[in-house]
Amino acid sequence: MSTSPKTGDAYLLYHSIGQYEGKKDDMAAGLADFCDVWGAANGDQWGDVLGKRQEFIDLWAELIHAPKGTVTTTESVTTGLMSVIGALPEGTLRGKRVLVAEDGFPSLHFLLTGLAKRFEFTLTTVPIRQGGNWVEAEDIISEWDETVAVALLTWVSSTSSHRLDIPQLVAHGREMGTIIGVDLTQAAGLLPYDVTAPKVDFALSTSLKWMCGTPGAGMIYMDHDLLLRCEPELRGWFSQDNPFSWDLDKFKFADDARRLDSGTPSSVSALASLPAMRWRMAQDSDKIAAHNRKLTGLLQEGLEDMGLILASPTNPDERGGSLMVNLPDSLPAAEVVAALREQAIFMDNRSQILRMSPGVLTTEDGVIRTLKALREIVQPAESRTAVATL
């Protein structure tokens, strides 16, 4: 007697939007609480809302081992990077280079391309080798000399799941005197990360993906030594130690990450993500990572057995929590994704690359079901190709 698949058993989209059991109810309760507070005619709103925003900040700091006063909120990783660039000491970038890799998130590249003329820097994009799927660490190092003022490293690539050797790259960057930032987005909440070991100058992330939060709930970490040298262009009453200091001639930046704030902080996204943050910090991190590692191992074995070529490192120690695979041109990836969706199997694609990321809801049975469905799509196509060539 067959049984229906468990809801979420083949949910493989943790590289996009993370889910966990009870998320909907947690979010509904959190937002209902916000509505109760914000809709009460009593003047008590800000104490509650700003307190919960601070809890969100504190939980992020705990996750990435950030010292007190070095984390604040931002709308997205892109706006966070804009805040960092606009805060750097005058002349930091002038006549220098900013270094990024081709497999970094495109939105950040778009931003830096637009800022290069204004801040008078040259943007250097390290390319993916011909036939490769990610940028190699040695290629980044080969482009990284004393002319690089800022290097933005992508810890885990969203298109290949390749994981950079951050300690190796930071060690090189320190010798070059570079300000070093890391985009943590594609593995934060799944793999452990410590912004102090090795010490980086800033880090950015969102509360989506493995963090299971909502859009608009980004975070900026900045090392305290750099913070004190920064005077952000984007500033406002919340950039001060006391936001209610309204003497127009006595503006003074806070001596911590609050100086990266500006006007009245956008708090709803942080409050909506707070239940997921609380859930995540209550979990066994090793157990979550081991579950992902087991399921990506099953996926890898099945995909390779079908003759499909991975677009991710074959060594699990060299990747994040996702597995990417190249589909032949005879199988339009978007059509494959749509066909699998009809069977309650959820993944996505970038061009001809399928992206699969199993998380806490995903089960071993769900992965087996995914592989079976994918095999039925791939192998008949192979058979048709073989017949056509006879």
Rank of each mutant, 00 (worst) to 15 (best):
S2A: 09
S2D: 10
P5C: 12
Y11K: 03
Y11P: 07
E21I: 06
E21M: 10
K23V: 01
K24L: 14
D25F: 03
D26N: 07
A32D: 07
A32R: 08
D36A: 12
V37K: 13
V37A: 13
G39Y: 09
N42T: 07
G43F: 03
G47E: 10
D48A: 15
L50C: 08
L50W: 10
K52V: 00
D58L: 00
D58R: 04
E62Y: 06
L63R: 14
K68G: 06
G69T: 06
G80E: 10
G80V: 11
I85S: 12
A87M: 06
E90D: 10
L93M: 14
R97Y: 12
F105P: 00
F105I: 14
H109P: 00
L112T: 06
L112M: 12
T113I: 02
F119M: 04
F119V: 05
F119W: 11
F121E: 04
T122C: 02
V126H: 03
Q130C: 02
Q130G: 08
G131D: 09
E138N: 13
E138Y: 03
D139I: 03
D139Y: 01
I140D: 04
I141P: 02
I141E: 14
I141F: 01
A149P: 09
V150F: 11
W155K: 15
S157Q: 13
S158W: 01
S160Y: 10
R163Y: 09
R163T: 01
I166M: 09
P167N: 13
A171E: 15
H172R: 13
G177Y: 08
G177C: 08
T178S: 15
T178P: 07
I179A: 11
I180M: 13
L184C: 04
A188T: 06
L190W: 08
Y193S: 07
T196E: 14
L204R: 11
S207I: 02
L208A: 06
M211N: 14
C212A: 13
C212R: 12
G216V: 07
G216Q: 08
D223L: 06
D223N: 14
H224Y: 00
L228M: 15
E231R: 12
E233F: 09
D249L: 13
K252E: 15
A254Q: 09
D256S: 11
D261F: 00
S262V: 08
P265H: 05
S266G: 13
V268K: 11
A272I: 01
S273N: 10
A276D: 01
W279C: 02
I288R: 05
A290G: 03
H291V: 00
R293S: 14
T296K: 04
G297M: 09
L299N: 04
E304V: 13
L308N: 02
D317F: 01
R319M: 08
G320L: 11
N326M: 12
N326K: 10
L331M: 15
V337I: 11
V337M: 09
R341G: 15
E342I: 02
I345D: 02
M347L: 15
Q352E: 11
Q352Y: 06
Q352K: 14
V360M: 03
R375C: 07
E376L: 00
S383K: 10
R384T: 02
